[in-house]
Amino acid sequence: MAMTEFRTVFGSLKDYTKGEIEIINDDRKNYAFSNMFEVAATSAPYERVVVGKNVEYVLEAIRAEGTSDWYTAAHDEFALVMDGTVELDLVKLDDPHSIAPPDKEGAVKLDGEPVGRKMGRIRMWRGHQALLPTGAAYRFRAPDPDAVGVILMQTILGDESVEKWSEICYT
C-alpha cells in the first residue's frame, strides 16, 4: 500500500497553529485548552505560566529570553525545551533547606547568587529535557539575543507559578 511521506511537524514561537474544539453538547472551558507557544509569545521573560494543573502538580510554559533569576526546589523538576536553544547552569546549594524547606512545593526564587559548588551546565535545544535535581539552584540562559526559547516545566504549583486561565484558554 502507498502512504504519503512522513514529515513530522513541530511547533515554534514563529510557526504554530492552535487547534480547536468542536462542541456537540459541552463547554469549551471544560478542556482548559491553550497553546504553549501562544502563551510564551505574550509572557514576560521567565514568567512561569501554568498551562496544566492536576491537583498540586503543574505544567508551566516559560518564555526563555535573556538570563533568568536563580531558582531551586525541594523536589526534582524537569525542563523540556520546545523551541530555541537554552543553556542551564546548576549549583549544589550549601544549605538548600534555608531557601526551600523539605515540605515546600514549587520553585523558589533565590535572592541574588546561589552559595554552593558549581555542578555543571547543559546546552540544549528543541526536544531536549533536563533534570533539575532536588537541592540544586538553576538558572536558564537564552544565548542567542535574537532568538527566544520556550521551555515546558514539570513541577509543582508554587509561589512563582502564574495562573491566568481566562487569558490563555478557549472560553
Binding site: 511537524v9 504554530y16 487547534g19 468542536e22 459541552d26 482548559a32 497553546n35 504553549m36 501562544e38
Partner: peptide, 29 residues
Amino acid sequence: SDQIDWEIEDKETGRPRAKVIMKAGDVAI
C-alpha cells in the same frame, strides 16, 4: 508534534460531547 483529533463522549452513556483537535504545542485536559 503533528495533530490528533479526539472524540469525546459522556463517560456513562457514550453520547458525543465534543471533538478536540490538538496541534503541536497545544495543551488540554
